[in-house]
Design a protein around this nucleic acid. Sequence first.
DNA 1: CGCGTTTGACCTGCGC
DNA 2: GCGCAGGTCAAACGCG
Length: 303
Amino acid sequence: MSGDHFGRVGGGGCVDGFPFVNDYSTLLSHSDQHGDFHGVDESFFGFSDYLLGSADAYGQLIDASVDADAFRAPASGGGGDKMIGGTTVLPVTPNSSASWSSTEAAGEEKEEEEAVVVAKEDLEDGSADKSKKVNKPRKKGEKRKREARFAFMTKSEVDHLEDGYRWRKYGQKAVKHSPYPRSYYRCTTQKCSVKKRVERSFEDPTIVITTYEGQHTHQSPATVRGAGSHILAPPPALPSGFHQELLMHQLPDVLNNNQQQQMMREFVNPNMYLPSPLQQQQQQLQFPDYGLLQDIVPPFSTN
DNA sequence: CGCGTTTGACCTGCGC
DNA sequence: GCGCAGGTCAAACGCG
């Protein structure tokens, strides 16, 4: 456990000096998948699977780098000393060679560009052949593109958490061994291919597991419209007593602080990053029970 | 009418 | 090769 601690959520609502109205305990997971992503992929899906699996296995997964007891706590419904009283962002992917260095990230972008080109060609060439419903044929041997992912658990009564972006649901699937379905969302902004999956933990139905994939290529619509503060307003549809707590977040230790911060901003909402601690404080105080994603970001913004 | 959701069908990757 | 599970598509539908 000598991993880099690049963020710590104080149990009393303090994050490295940043006051938090909620004592979010966060532990996110992230994976970067490109080339032969097997190792990383496994770590990611392993993580997901463990979330849905037994607590023991769950503990096993993170045993290598994380205090299993602390990790297990969320599944127990956050009893006792508030899940991970002081959450430590801990290294994951012990065996993973995955890295999120800027060079690799750039490589992935390139890969993605190529994918887009291919898709375009398919569209033009195969426009006449639309008999096939789904499917743009991929180059042979080409693996399905997977963008960097970023997952976190949230204790929430609502499945789809507001994060400032607009999402369109494009699918829903039953999850094996879980009574709760998994929903698939895509960012509605054109040219933005960010996706997100939302599912509920079957072990603790109060926990929502959200997985982002890809990076937004635009500003948050809400931010653009509402000059920054709009997105922080609680959604009107929130039930009374709405409560959500971010349970976990985890970033690979191969990232340095700057990269982690960057990821957080890109994955979640780049506009939620507020350079001024005072602004952060004001916003958080203003909306104590909402905006989990905003609340994730500050801890990583404190360098 | 535009936008978002629902839902069944289809495709892909992977393990056996 | 086959079956399963995850992921995606798109028509149909609902809502404001």
